[in-house]
């Protein structure tokens, strides 16, 4: 459920809108970039937000600050994430906004996980807390 893509650690996951029964991706799993600079839960591109039906749900807006200091408006909707190979689900706010072109896994989701990144050995392991 975890791997490196180059030097970038990624988690294979499925996001779900429990209320409309929609998942992204609709089959299999998608790669989310582990981004410890992102203090949200999960960020997805706009098309994924739509495939999850979250554009049909009532949502909240929040400010996002990018790495280069720009402020963007984020739409937020509650969603559920399951990591590939596990059964445990993680609930939290899924956001989208301009310029978000890949799935970002933030510290809001990472706080429930123990990550073991070993760049020397080129290994990346993930386990649930506890």
């Amino acid at each position: 459920m975890s791997s490196f893509a180059g030097r970038t650690p990624r988690l294979m996951l499925t996001a779900k809108n429990e209320f409309l029964g929609l998942s992204f991706p609709s089959s299999g799993a998608a790669a989310g970039v582990v981004d410890t600079g992102f203090d949200g839960f999960l960020a997805v591109p706009g098309f994924a937000f739509s495939e999850l039906g979250m554009d049909q749900m009532q949502s909240t807006t929040t400010d996002g600050v990018t790495a280069d200091g720009r402020r963007i408006e984020l739409r937020s909707c509650m969603g559920c994430v399951t990591l590939l190979g596990t059964r445990k689900t993680h609930d939290g706010p899924v956001v989208t906004g301009p310029g978000i072109r890949e799935i970002l896994v933030g510290t809001g989701l990472l706080r429930t996980l123990r990550l073991k990144l070993d760049y020397c050995a080129g290994t990346f392991g993930v386990e649930e807390c506890g």
Partner: peptide, 10 residues
């Protein structure tokens, strides 16, 4: 405010 880290490539 949510900080989008290095993964955001605008």
């Amino acid at each position: 405010v949510v900080h989008l880290g290095m993964g955001s490539k605008l």
